[in-house]
Amino acid sequence: MRSLRAALRRLLHAILLGLVGAGIVHIVVLLLVPEFSERDAWSRLSMASDLYRMNRLDAEAGGAPVVKSVDPLFYATACRFDLEEGMVRIKAPGDVPFWSVSVYDRSGHNIYSFNDHTAAGGKLDAVVLTPAQMIDVRKDLPEDLQGAIFVEAPIDEGIFVIRSFVPDESWKPIVSRFLDQSSCELQDF
């Protein structure tokens, strides 16, 4: 009988100790949420530069990368934009083995992706705009936008990311030039 009571006490003590420990861990996690939420991609890019400015994301650009890249065979650049100010046009000159593009909302959710196989002639020329802006552009499409890829995004603020494949050392300067010469510009049409 005594051993049963002792075992029940130890079990109750372990359960109470586990609940107190879980409560402490829960409080610590809640207190750390603001610390981690301020380090998202949008915040890091905003500390690096203004809207409509391309920022290299790979370490090859010099210094620590703004956002860590998952694949060392890809170089990347990104720009933040605000569609409330108008449409944004992204262009990059030159030819590289492969490029891909992603449009993210401010929270980091992927809205749209495409690559060089989608683009006319493999050239990067894209316009990101809201559905309302798309209606206005369709009324009178400017001639210089005839070959552009239109990305209708139901967002206000977002991030445009260009990634390019670097197959070997000889391609590093070409891919770097491609990304460094890319542009992200506010458009008024």
Results as ranks from 00 to 15, higher is better:
60 E>C: 05
59 A>C: 07
76 A>P: 04
118 T>A: 12
72 P>F: 05
127 V>D: 02
34 P>M: 02
132 A>Q: 14
65 P>N: 10
123 K>S: 11
84 E>K: 14
106 R>H: 11
121 G>L: 10
61 A>P: 05
50 D>A: 12
40 D>P: 02
69 S>W: 02
38 E>I: 01
35 E>S: 12
37 S>V: 09
137 V>D: 02
107 S>R: 15
98 F>T: 00
58 D>Y: 01
98 F>N: 05
56 R>W: 04
59 A>P: 04
59 A>M: 11
76 A>N: 09
58 D>M: 01
109 H>F: 12
108 G>D: 03
125 D>N: 15
131 P>W: 06
92 A>I: 11
63 G>E: 05
76 A>K: 07
107 S>P: 00
110 N>D: 10
93 P>M: 01
123 K>N: 10
110 N>Y: 04
68 K>A: 13
32 L>E: 07
40 D>S: 10
86 G>W: 10
140 D>G: 00
115 N>T: 12
52 Y>F: 15
55 N>R: 10
33 V>W: 02
80 R>Q: 10
107 S>F: 09
34 P>R: 02
101 V>K: 00
74 F>A: 03
45 L>K: 02
32 L>R: 08
79 C>N: 04
40 D>R: 05
139 K>F: 03
49 S>K: 12
114 F>G: 04
135 I>N: 06
89 R>C: 02
96 V>Y: 13
118 T>D: 15
99 W>T: 06
80 R>T: 07
68 K>S: 08
87 M>A: 14
117 H>F: 13
33 V>C: 00
86 G>V: 11
88 V>N: 00
145 L>H: 04
61 A>M: 06
116 D>Q: 12
87 M>E: 03
41 A>H: 05
114 F>L: 14
138 R>W: 10
88 V>G: 01
144 D>A: 01
107 S>L: 13
78 A>G: 07
96 V>Q: 14
81 F>D: 02
125 D>G: 04
80 R>Y: 06
121 G>A: 09
63 G>T: 10
121 G>M: 11
99 W>K: 07
106 R>Y: 11
58 D>G: 06
97 P>S: 13
49 S>Y: 03
49 S>T: 14
85 E>Q: 15
42 W>N: 11
56 R>K: 05
79 C>I: 06
142 P>Q: 09
39 R>F: 09
108 G>P: 07
78 A>Q: 03
75 Y>L: 15
62 G>E: 07
148 A>L: 01
113 S>G: 11
39 R>H: 13
127 V>A: 05
109 H>M: 14
105 D>Y: 10
81 F>K: 06
88 V>M: 04
94 G>E: 03
73 L>V: 01
89 R>F: 05
105 D>C: 13
114 F>C: 09
121 G>Q: 08
42 W>Q: 13
136 D>C: 00
131 P>Y: 06
144 D>H: 06
112 Y>D: 08
61 A>Q: 07
58 D>W: 02
126 A>F: 10
113 S>D: 11
112 Y>P: 01
124 L>R: 14
80 R>D: 04
66 V>K: 08
51 L>A: 00
33 V>A: 08
33 V>T: 09
73 L>H: 08
63 G>M: 05
72 P>C: 03
85 E>C: 01
119 A>C: 12
142 P>L: 06
107 S>E: 15
64 A>G: 00
34 P>C: 09
103 V>F: 05
126 A>W: 09
144 D>R: 04
81 F>N: 04
116 D>F: 09
127 V>W: 06
84 E>F: 08
99 W>V: 10
96 V>I: 15
45 L>P: 05
